[in-house]
Design a protein around this nucleic acid. Structure first.
Length: 577
DNA sequence: GCCGTTTTCGGCCCGACTGTTTTCAGTCG
């Protein structure tokens, strides 16, 4: 069993222990062990062999024995016993907000509920509100949570789906029978949530290619199959389609299946106005008055660029194909030159082991430098984020000093000392100006009381942005994709305030955030608001999300000059000063 | 389950919100 599987298993044990009413601190011990191993990227088997689990992770006898069993045999008798004693439905119920282990146990013990379905029936019948400690509001919250979980069920995060899609594409690309192949659909457009992986390929032998596709290693089942098309469901749960066309049709198919539907409809309409017909098979000119048999004449296009050119349009990058004015802009040759991943020079808002990060200051800085960045901003949590081990004023001062010292040893690379300071309930900040003024920059973010009404939350964010030491607003909506809805925020006012105060707005590209949403960025840009793309990295591997942050920025029509962390080290120094 | 040791037990990281109560349990971050 690898590190990630051990981590997952320990977390499952912790949940099962809570659900079975065990001492919560026993469960906590498993959670802590999971967290410790989660942050370890070395070889667990070696640690087991050297009997160093205790010294490395602070595990006691019981946990050492269990982790050893997991790593060496891939199984754990203790877990099997636990699983058998707790109905599987209770684990699923723990996903519903407002339901913790205690309430789930009450529901199970008093109403005999052991599945989400039974819970829904009981809520609808008004049975749940009659239990002590429950009420009408809880019932409502549960139903709401169940409904939401259903809409999330077949959705996948962009970064996860893309990784699976790229693996599949790369495997098929090596096939002898493939001329061209690409990821299409929402993934190609960089949309934050997708429910399917769509691949388009060209080949003279579709059958062989599809044969390979439907027997892909990570495939769970085949949903459909014909001569040119197949759908499979991957082990990860997401479905994937492969459409194989002739090489002469490839560009048209790729465009068609990249979408969006709105973009395609608008483009077909434009083609019609030019007496042309655009389909997934080709572009045709329609000869007026000609006989029906000769009515259509094919306009061959090898690439999407040629399709757009044939329609007198500037090429539209896939990220912009959302039917939000891109065709009009392309007709006037006003599609901007979008930011590119290679233009990022640094990033802000990263964490270290000082708060809830998994890597040290030095490890984070080294990784950022190895990735080719020239500066890194460290912004650990402030004191109010107790669970995240937020820094006290004293610990922050120590960290600033450590960063200043580290910079003395770094050539051509600079670490900026900042703080991700909590925006408190009333919009005041977790540290006073006397603390903030000593930092290179400040990220201000909300981490609690996220359910305020729109007016209160908006005023709260505005008050924080008006502080002269706040450089940027962190993850403004607070959403966690597939987990938690965005807070109620009036972005129109937030963008106005950012423009007025010169506060940058973060495009937090942590996998489940992507916040501020791409749908707001074009408007923000037009009002002169600057973007900063931050991974909110809690470990070195999360720097990789920067690439996806750039994709989201491109979806928001952002150019290099709209994004602060494309500035060189000298330029960003001046900007921060 | 872990830890310390003035302890072989009792505390463990904690403050605030929510919805339920009418003083607080459960959940959350």
């Amino acid at each position: 069993m690898d590190n990630a599987q051990v981590t997952d298993t320990l977390e499952e044990i912790a949940l099962l222990l809570e659900l079975s009413g065990e001492n919560p601190f026993k469960a906590l011990a498993y959670t802590k062990a999971a967290r410790a191993i989660d942050g370890y990227d070395g070889d667990l088997e070696a640690l087991v062999a050297e009997k160093k689990l205790g010294s490395e992770f602070g595990l006691g006898d019981a946990l050492q024995q269990k982790v050893t069993e997991l790593v060496t045999t891939g199984k754990l008798a203790y877990l099997d016993k636990l699983r058998a004693s707790v109905p599987a439905g209770l684990v699923a119920m723990a996903e519903i907000p407002a339901l913790g282990p205690k309430k789930i146990r009450t529901l199970h013990d008093k109403l005999g509920i052991s599945s989400v379905e039974e819970l829904e029936v009981a809520c609808r019948a008004g049975k749940v509100r009659e239990l002590a400690g429950f009420g009408a509001k809880t019932e409502e919250k549960i139903l709401d949570g169940i409904a939401r979980a259903r809409t999330y069920a077949d959705q996948f995060l962009y970064s996860e789906a893309l990784a699976l899609a790229e693996e599949l594409r790369d495997a098929l690309r090596n096939h002898n029978e493939v001329a061209q192949i690409a990821i299409a659909g929402g993934l190609r457009r960089g949309i934050e949530l997708v429910d399917v992986i769509e691949l388009v390929a060209s080949s003279r032998n579709p059958k062989e290619l599809l044969d390979d596709f439907v027997t892909w290693t990570d495939m769970k089942s085949v949903t459909s199959r014909d001569d040119h098309f197949a759908t499979i469901i991957l082990k990860a749960g997401i479905s994937a389609t492969l459409r194989v066309v002739a090489d002469s049709e490839y560009a048209f198919a790729l465009h068609e299946f990249t979408g969006s539907a709105e973009h395609n409809a608008a483009l077909r309409e434009l083609a019609a106005a030019q007496k042309k017909e655009l389909t997934g098979h080709g572009l045709f000119s329609i000869k007026e008055g000609a006989k029906k048999s000769a009515a259509r004449e094919s306009i061959p296009c090898r690439t999407e660029h040629e399709i757009f050119a044939a329609l007198d349009l500037q090429e539209i990058p896939p990220e912009l194909r959302e039917g939000r004015g891109e065709i009009e802009a392309a007709a006037e040759h006003k599609i901007p030159r979008l930011i590119e991943w290679t233009q990022l020079r640094g990033t802000f808002h990263c964490h270290t082991t000082a708060s809830d990060g998994r890597n040290s200051l030095l490890e984070m800085a080294t990784e950022a430098r190895d990735l080719g960045l020239t500066y890194l901003g460290i912004a650990d949590h402030s004191r109010s984020s107790v669970i995240a081990n937020g820094l006290s004023e004293e610990r922050l001062a120590d960290q600033v000093e450590a960063i200043r010292k580290l910079n003395l040893d770094l050539d051509e690379f600079h670490v900026f000392a900042g703080s991700e300071v909590d925006i408190l309930k009333d919009g005041s900040l977790d540290f006073g100006d006397d603390v903030l003024r000593h930092l290179d920059y400040v990220v201000a973010s909300v981490h609690n009381v996220m359910g305020q009404d729109e007016e209160t939350m908006t005023a709260r964010l505005i008050r924080a942005m008006e502080n002269e030491y706040v450089t940027m607003l962190g993850h403004p909506s607070g959403r966690r994709l597939l987990q938690r809805e965005a807070s109620r925020v009036n972005f129109d006012k937030i963008i106005d305030c950012a423009a007025r105060t010169g506060t940058w707005i973060e495009l937090n590209c942590s996998a489940s955030r992507m916040d501020m949403d791409w749908r707001w960025w074009r408007e923000a840009r037009d009002r002169g608001v600057k973007c900063v793309i931050n991974p909110d990295a809690h470990r070195i591997s999360q720097f990789a999300m920067l690439r996806h942050g750039v994709t989201a920025a491109r979806k928001g029509w952002l150019r290099r000059e709209d994004v602060m962390n494309t500035l060189t080290l000298d330029e960003i120094r001046r900007a921060l000063a």
